[in-house]
Design a protein around this nucleic acid. Structure first.
Lengths: 198, 198, 198, 198
DNA sequence: ACATAAACGAGACGGTACGTCAGGTCTTTCA
DNA sequence: TGAAAGACCTGACGTACCGTCTCGTTTATGT
């Protein structure tokens, strides 16, 4: 049956799991991802190193679990639909601006984005568990707008969502410019209206 | 007399500098950024470790110099201007698709993008020396289009450029989807025309 | 009511005890004493670690029991007495040469000798249960020879026994020289006759 | 030429070497050989672990070097020769009794004897560098006595020396009985005269 | 015959030390 | 005096076992 050394999850210590998550999130905020170490997490959590290695393959995996356990991103998340697409998008994006400017959120999320860029396997998990849910919610809202006739039929909604979200993510990840309400408002307007003169 | 420890750049060995760049680029392609080490570079380059530490503060800095020395991105780079904005953008973006799909280019560029995300100081250099030149070229082309009346006056051209480039970068960096000619063509059309029904 | 945690020896599993002994003796032969581990014994014996810790305080104690259970050295062991002291001693020592050159015997016995040298408590048990019986048998045989007038009255028989046995043990333990029939024959003659010229 | 990674002994730090020896000898006295660790030595010596691993293959090797560097046993060591063999032997053995009863000496020497018993390679070095010099000195003294006619010609002097030294070593190593002046005096008399009644 | 309590197998746990790798500093030797 | 070589201290890696501590599951009475 090829189980090959899988530890018994039933006997797992919930207390340790929580302590490891807390320690990981604290430490990544304090020292940054590069200086985050398994030993440091174990020590802060009051846990043996082996208890971490038993359940996770890398510090990135620990952090990913810690982050999702914490910020649990309920899967069925949805954007509001007041009928006014631009307003709805701006509303949600402004909230996201606040979230991404929160230091509690920033350190682990940036660390995961970065670790993912180097490790395709982790990247997939990161994207699936954290980014895609967000993108899907946008695509869904755009789909309803398209059905209501507000968006042209030929438009690829996935790409449309990326036109909104990627400039946002990119600015944040690369720190090329601050994330402001103005920025997202302008972005939404340009995406909806296009840049060409009519 | 306040130089305090700055080595004399005149006496610097050009041979060593080149060897270090070559070794760094080779190795990052072979083992990836995480497993790239100063010792490895020094050994491959036939150089003492100190020779690296004397001139660069980190492996990221070495790589950045190596990459820019190699792919030198001449600063006065410009987009073509045939009068057809959409065609010009698509032309350049298709070339960029090919470039980003080239393994030679991918490893170091991704490494730098990632290292930058965690290190604001490096990030600034990376952005200034590699990304901004690209964005500026786009902004410049868009400005000419705006002057020619093809783009509405109120449009923030920087954000417009990001609407094109960020979805592209993001897909590549996060590997969320392959970079294709179709994708960039669609992207250009949507950015120019907007997604709303007229 | 001061029993505090003594396990009930009646309920003890004989099957496990045997399996542990077998595993310990096998493993000490295969990997040596230093690399002998409690976990290894438990695993080889198909036994929980706790079952070992319940009954023995250390791997040395397990090995000591395993060895004595196996090579049980009946306590009332005696040297032959044909009337010819030298011949009797040589006969027994030659048999002992063979025994000590048997690999089955060597690994655990050496391990115990060594472990004992570092651990006085264990040493006592080892000496009492394995070595003293041997020495006593020699002393006994010498005593009879002394009573028969073959050995001078003033001789300390314990020391006399050690003069025979210690060079033997020492050569074996330190591997300073091979154990041969010649060696023990010569030894017996020298001990009996002394080295001085008459 | 097959040098395979041998470090350059010229550049070696004498300060570190000494500190390691001191730490090893101190620690083996304080905690015993089993609980002596490379990490402990490194830490006590204020030295990196790698500096130990660079120069020695095991804690036993460190201890052996430390002990011989300290108690340097000048190779040309000789027993006194007053013409009275018994007196000379007793004199030297009484001094050795004192030495072996000195706690400073005991811990490392016992540790080495024991480690050697389990590791043939180490054993050889231990025997060559510490034990053989002693035995040789005895053999030498006995040889002179033999030449002077005090010892029978047929006597194997190596075995004669072992008859004196092995009971001594054995008692000490196994703690079977205390080392006293009386013991060594008796031993010498019995070895010289034999135990048989004349 | 059955209840019950102990020993049992299994193995997760907090730890310690292992032996290795690389970081960044310092020193020696050479051209 | 810059550079090669590489020893040094430091600290994290991932692994192996330690001895303790639950978990169900036998097993062996003792009522």
């Amino acid at each position: 049956m090829a189980t090959t050394k899988t530890p018994d999850a039933n006997r797992r210590s919930e207390r340790s799991r929580r302590a490891i998550f807390d320690a990981a999130l604290e430490l990544v905020g304090e020292v940054g991802y590069d200086k985050l170490t398994i030993e440091g997490i174990a020590s802060r959590a009051g846990v043996g190193k082996q208890t971490i290695y038993r359940w996770w393959p890398s510090k990135a995996a620990v952090l990913l679990d810690a982050f999702t356990a914490d910020a649990g991103d309920e899967p069925g998340w949805e954007l509001p639909d007041t009928g006014d697409l631009a307003a709805d998008l701006k509303f949600v994006l402004r909230a996201t601006v606040d979230e991404f400017n929160d230091p509690k959120f920033e350190a682990p999320y940036r660390a995961l984005a970065v670790a993912g860029a180097n490790d395709p396997e982790l990247s997939e998990q990161f994207v699936n568990r954290l980014q895609d849910t967000g993108v899907q919610a946008y695509v869904e809202r755009l789909r309803r707008a398209q059905e209501a006739g507000a968006i042209a039929e030929h438009v690829d909604l996935r790409i449309a969502a990326e036109m909104i979200l990627s400039p946002f993510s990119q600015r944040w990840l690369m720190r090329t410019a601050p994330l402001t309400y103005d920025f997202v408002d302008t972005l939404v307007d340009l995406v909806l209206g296009g840049i060409s003169r009519r």
